[in-house]
């Protein structure tokens, strides 16, 4: 319990630090919002009146508090390019990013865990060696080149899906999930390779434990030993990595959305950087950073619940 409180407090502090940095970078550095709004030909009185009405003359901490309060109430400011509230602009994009994340995490999870155990089980055999080399090669491919290869091999050459097609979730939900699938695979592949390597190491170090011999001598089949007894213990060190990957996936893959032409948060972020639409940029970045921080902390807490042997330090 003490650990839980300590962890939550430190998480909130980190979030405050990050949000303050974001505020500094995007609200203070870009220059005088009044001048950029009214143009350089506005008279000093007009500028002054605008600054006063927008509260730009208040000291920085007051402005930060107001900015933060707005965020907590779901008011992310107004987009300078579209002149509409940022929150409304983001909701569609968030749907795409979140579904892509969930889909790729499922794909990743149900392939990497069994594969990792199998690679460890057959590590001396041809299967283990080949898949080890394969994992290393997959890790060397940049995620967006994986995406391009998928489009080239399965989309253009084998014509198994139509590249760059997007179905809105309102039109056909299954079609929506289907058009996200290639992108989900591209996100998942390098992560599968990472986890398989870690899990293999972890399983190999568990193989020699006493409880494994006990399980064998009680007559358990080798599959039962590997997937029931060993996996449970081997998962413990892997949990942290799984958490990091979950955080990374939930934050969205900026590059993969670009490769597959998906209208998610990442693509919107890139186009907003191009048009210097800072309210949008800061909202999306804050979302991505917050997701990573919150999930990582939740996983740390979960880690202690799963394995009470770990002492609080």
């Amino acid at each position: 319990m003490k650990y839980f409180i300590k962890k939550t407090v430190s998480m909130i502090i980190t979030l405050l630090i990050v949000s303050f940095l974001m505020f500094l970078v995007f609200e203070i550095i870009p220059g005088d919002a009044a001048v950029s709004k009214l143009g350089t030909e506005a008279t000093p009185e007009q500028v002054e009146r605008y600054r006063e009405s927008m509260g730009l003359n208040d000291p920085v901490p007051v402005r930060y508090a107001r900015w933060l309060a707005g965020y907590l109430h779901g008011d992310f400011g107004t987009s300078t390019k579209y002149e509409r509230p940022v929150a409304g602009l983001l909701s569609d994009k968030l749907t795409v990013t979140l579904f892509l994340a969930v889909e790729s995490f499922f794909f990743f999870f149900f392939i990497s865990i069994p594969l990792g155990v199998l690679v460890a089980k057959y590590s001396g055999k041809a299967f283990g060696r080949i898949s080890h080399l394969l994992m290393q090669i997959i890790m060397a491919i940049t995620s967006f080149f994986t995406g391009i290869l998928l489009v080239f091999i399965f989309g253009i050459t084998l014509k198994m899906f139509t590249p760059y097609r997007f179905v809105a979730p309102g039109d056909s939900f299954l079609g929506f999930l289907g058009c996200l699938f290639p992108a989900a695979v591209a996100i998942a592949l390098p992560k599968i390779a990472t986890v398989v390597r870690f899990l293999k190491q972890s399983v190999t170090s568990e193989e020699r434990q006493d409880y494994v011999r006990t399980a064998y001598s009680k007559g358990a089949s080798s599959n039962r030993v590997y997937f029931l007894h060993i996996l449970k213990n081997a998962m413990i060190p892997v949990t942290t990595i799984l958490g990091m990957i979950l955080a990374e996936v939930m934050a969205g893959s900026i590059v993969i959305e670009q490769v597959f032409n998906l209208p998610g948060l990442g693509r919107f972020l890139v186009s907003s950087i191009g048009s210097r639409d800072f309210p949008v940029v800061s909202a999306i970045m804050l979302y991505m950073a917050a997701v990573v921080i919150i999930i990582n902390n939740l996983v740390d807490i979960l880690y202690h619940v799963v394995d009470p042997r770990i002492q609080n330090d």
């Binding site: 990050v18 934050a251 991505m288 990573v292």
Partner: peptide
């Protein structure tokens, strides 16, 4: 800083 992805 590490909690913040390097790409971001």
């Amino acid at each position: 800083m590490t909690a913040f992805p390097s790409m971001l």
